[in-house]
Amino acid sequence: MKPYKIIRISIKELFTFKKIWLAIIVYCFVVLPSLMLIARNGAWSDRGIFDLIADVGGALGSTNHHMFYIVAIPIIVTIITQLIEKHEGALYVITFGSRFRAWHSHVTSVVCLSFILTFLILTISFLVGGLFVGMDNTWVHPSGTIGKLLNDREEFQSLVANVTTYKIVFSLFITKFLGFLMISFFALFLKQFIKSGALIMIILIGLAGLDQTGAFIPIFTWRATLSINNWLDPIVTIYNSIYLLIVSLVLYAITGWLYERKDFLS
């Protein structure tokens, strides 16, 4: 089977769950605006669209930490669980010709899923955020959240280049995409040992909760959130992105290795 055909089949498989996708879109349209409204509450600065999308605290907003365990983890685990349970079997491997190709069809599916989810969440966030507060980037103004938080005009002027619109959008896209990719690979990895999708979700939400408590150094979804530290020192975003990519690659390698030894007949 030619590689492009594997990619085509993988993407096609992803969209076989039409009802689930419809439910996901409805769920996102209900929950994401609500998360934005929660982030809007208690405004102490000139709130702009990015305050609603990625609050400087790191937890609130439609793309920050609360989104991960309310939206991203349930959606990713649901899709991946259904994908594996529906398509995985001896016949599936025979269709692809080898375990290697069958595994890479799953990898293609999770990469596409991460990309689609990132695109969906950001699109809804910008559409709804634009309706709520307009599209103006208030973070570049001294009256915006970053300016108020720093309370130092000189320091703010030196940092304003870090919060230009295209840099924020780029950071949002990269961190969310890599965060979703890591969650997807984690779910695929756990699926090799755990049959119950709900149990996988408990584990992933538990890890996300552990990150939020701050009891240990962040190892999971907190790395994919954007807080004031990321804007004060953009190198933090680069480090976090590299971390997410490395974890994803390690999980890809380990799960691929396990997949090569998997028994599809029993």
Binding site: Y27, V30, V31, S34, L35, L37, I38, N41, I70, P74, V77, T78, T81, Q82, E85, S196, G197, A198, M201
Partner: peptide, 23 residues
């Protein structure tokens, strides 16, 4: 069975977010 098991979680999360939105 998977949808059945995660349904209560989604209901709680959905109501939590909506009630928080309404203060």
């Amino acid at each position: 069975r998977y949808i059945v098991l995660i349904f209560p979680f989604l209901v709680v999360m959905g109501i939590d977010v909506l009630t928080s939105t309404m203060g």
